[in-house]
Design a protein around this nucleic acid. Structure first.
Lengths: 152, 152
DNA sequence: ACCTTCCGTGGACGCGATCGACCTCAACCT
DNA sequence: AGGTTGAGGTCGATCGCGTCCACGGAAGGT
């Protein structure tokens, strides 16, 4: 993980579809060298994948909610997690310090669907209570933070 | 936005580096047709970009926090937003219904940096108070929800 | 029926991806 | 010091992909 690797990570974080040739030009190496570096970053787990960034409204997911979960005392956290994992509307899941064991970010199409999701969450074994906040708008999300020092 | 478009969106959401030729095979069209469709999805704003998914720990961002913000009464929300936007550690920013106007997701390297961030947040004009929760682990994040019906 | 528009296909051509051979340098061993 | 080894690079060649263009057929309007 030298400066060139960090540079590649930054470039791919801003545009994951850059060609190896273009990446090579940007970092000042040959295309095969970049190809090998990126391959190593992938197999070492630094680069976990490449995702298109999609406007949620455009695919019918206009409602965003953030939901805190309080577990039952003695609940099996792994079981709870497995149940959450089966709900595709839960985009993100953080295990938190504090009274609320989990914080979930969910996206659904309508408030009615959100209601159904909350009902399902409250019914899943191990969940004591939920507290949901509705996002009126997403100002930004997953903004890539440059990790390599600016080129000066 | 027909079924093929949704299919393309799903494919790119799972792997943004798929070649047009490969996409074409998967959806049963020719490469130029896919090229044109993807181009239109980009210019129409459905596809906002393509991002590498990076393991945060690997780039020195091991601490994740979720921070609720209460605004001063009479604060200028746009100014507050602009201030947040200048803080690169804030990865996501949601404008919320409820007492807390914003919910921020921030990533930093150390608890000390988190402390500094919170201090800065509390100092920014328009912010009345903050409430931060620390994520002990990220179970998953930005899981792509398939948007097109399964191929059956 | 005709025209127009949209959306696709097929062919062509230049560039990119990717493999293998070779080079360079630094670290380490003897 | 000299030799060996391995990591990480360049170069060149080959093959497939990206992308442009001309053409074709279906749907819909007049």
């Amino acid at each position: 993980m030298d400066a060139i690797d960090l540079n590649l990570v930054d470039l791919l974080r801003t545009n994951a579809r850059l060609s190896y040739a273009e990446l090579a030009r940007q970092v000042g190496l040959s295309a095969p060298a970049v190809h090998e570096r990126v391959g190593k970053l992938e197999t070492s787990g630094v680069l976990r994948g490449y995702r298109a960034d999609v406007e949620p409204e455009a695919v019918g997911l206009g409602v965003t909610a953030l939901i805190g979960i309080v577990e039952d005392s003695g609940a099996d956290t792994d079981d709870v997690l497995a149940a959450f994992r089966k709900m595709p509307e839960i985009e993100s899941c953080y295990f938190m310090a504090g009274v609320e064991s989990f914080l979930l970010k969910a996206r659904v199409g309508t408030i009615a669907e959100l209601e159904q999701l909350i009902v399902r969450l409250n019914r899943t074994p191990g969940v004591a209570s939920t507290r949901t906040g509705i996002a009126l708008s997403t100002k930004w999300e997953n903004r890539p933070r440059p990790v390599s020092p600016p080129a000066a």
